[in-house]
Computed example of a mutant assay.
Amino acid sequence: MFCRDGAPTARFLPALVAAGQGVFHFDASAQMRRRPLGPLTRALRELGVDLIHTGQEGHHPLTVRANGIKGGHITLDAGLSSQFLTALLLVGPLTREGLQITVTDLVSAPYVEITLAMMRRFGVEVRRAGDTFFVPSQPYTASRYAIEPDASTASYPLAAAALTGNSVTIPGLGSGSLQGDVRFAEVLGRMGAAVEMTSDSVTVTGNGRLHGLTVNMRGISDTVPTLAAIAPFADGPVRIENVYNTRIKECDRLEACAENLRRLGVPVSTGRDWIEIHPAKPSAAEIACHGDHRIAMSFSVTGLLTPGITLDEPGCVKKICGRCGSPRT
């Protein structure tokens, strides 16, 4: 299987096939090969899975010689990606004895809540005690399942409304949403936009002004580039904190945001897990997308108020959405 740029595909399926029988070979794009896989594959090996990395250890490509998974207790570091935990949670019911997963660190926790809620809808109740998840061994059962709109992608039109003084409503996302990234609307509210949220919709209305703020975005880190792209228009500094994991996405998103803001003439500074952007009127420039759809989409919002912004790689937005499987076009 060639996983291209799809991180969920590249991380979930090696765990899934390990519960089956046969030999499975996985590879991915150069971009995905650079992204870490080690915490997941170490956990699978602890469970007795015959797995080898045929290139760099802890990265694609890899080969799984599957003969089912007995189950048992493992310790997992999910501080780089919640997808490592999701992969193990999803395969847990297919093990012979179930899984007990103790997590030492966890980023993007709202995505794990999506996984647990989905598993519940398909008949599997995962019990959690502190940092340990208990996954029973039992079959999934068929169910009708409504898929929400992608809240991360919704951040672009919501940011555009806040930036330009317009109003945008996203149906299907609201206070009842399972996705943590719907909270990006709350960030826009702190910046001065009017936010109205019902159980199944969110509306953001801008007034042409944005305020600076300091915000911890560890739980909604996919929306960091969106906020960075509109930050120059705020009336004070915008500081985004606790987002180290954005450095190991499709690209180093903290550095990519800083690079492009500097291209636009915007003062910016960064640290290991933070970026701070100061108010400035952006100038026309070419955006370096680094093959990352989120960089392209985010700085396209900047372009709404900055004539002359171009993208060096607009085709990168054709990436397949890791959560719903549809192309981002």
Rank of each mutant, 00 (worst) to 15 (best):
Y111A: 09
K319S: 14
R128T: 14
R127W: 02
S175L: 14
P282M: 13
E241P: 00
V23Y: 00
G38P: 00
T86E: 13
R4S: 12
S82T: 11
H60N: 13
L89K: 05
G20V: 04
R190A: 12
G315K: 13
A151I: 06
V64G: 07
R65W: 02
F122M: 14
G308C: 12
P61M: 12
V49Q: 11
T86H: 01
A109H: 09
N207M: 02
D150V: 10
G291A: 11
P225Q: 11
E46S: 14
L90E: 07
A10Y: 00
P8S: 15
L227A: 06
G180Y: 06
G303I: 14
V64A: 12
A185H: 02
I240R: 04
Q21I: 04
I220E: 05
A19S: 15
D252C: 07
V112R: 09
G271N: 01
M217R: 12
L40W: 01
P149V: 11
T41A: 07
V126C: 06
G174T: 09
V204W: 03
N207D: 13
D150S: 06
G236C: 09
V224C: 08
P307E: 12
S221R: 04
L16V: 13
L47R: 03
M297W: 05
S175I: 03
R247K: 10
P157N: 05
E113G: 11
T169N: 03
A142Q: 12
C321I: 12
T54P: 00
T203E: 08
F299Q: 12
Q56F: 02
A15C: 05
G72K: 12
R96P: 00
T246V: 15
Q56N: 12
G308T: 12
L51D: 06
V268Y: 04
R121E: 15
T246S: 03
Q56C: 03
C324K: 08
H293P: 01
E259G: 00
S155L: 06
A284L: 10
S143F: 03
D235L: 13
R263Q: 13
I309W: 08
G38N: 05
P232V: 15
A109C: 01
R263V: 03
H211W: 04
F24H: 15
D50S: 14
A30W: 02
S137W: 07
A234K: 08
D131N: 15
V202A: 05
H25P: 00
V266R: 08
V103I: 09
V112F: 07
D222A: 06
T203F: 04
T104Q: 03
G176E: 12
D235R: 13
F12R: 02
A30C: 01
A285E: 11
A162L: 13
T226P: 00
D273L: 09
D77H: 10
G38K: 15
G212S: 13
V243W: 02
S221H: 06
A193E: 10
F134A: 09
R218F: 03
A66S: 13
G58F: 05
C324S: 14
P157A: 10
G208R: 09
L305P: 02
E57V: 12
F133C: 02
L99M: 10
N216K: 13
I309V: 15
T246N: 01
Y156V: 07
D222H: 05
F24A: 04
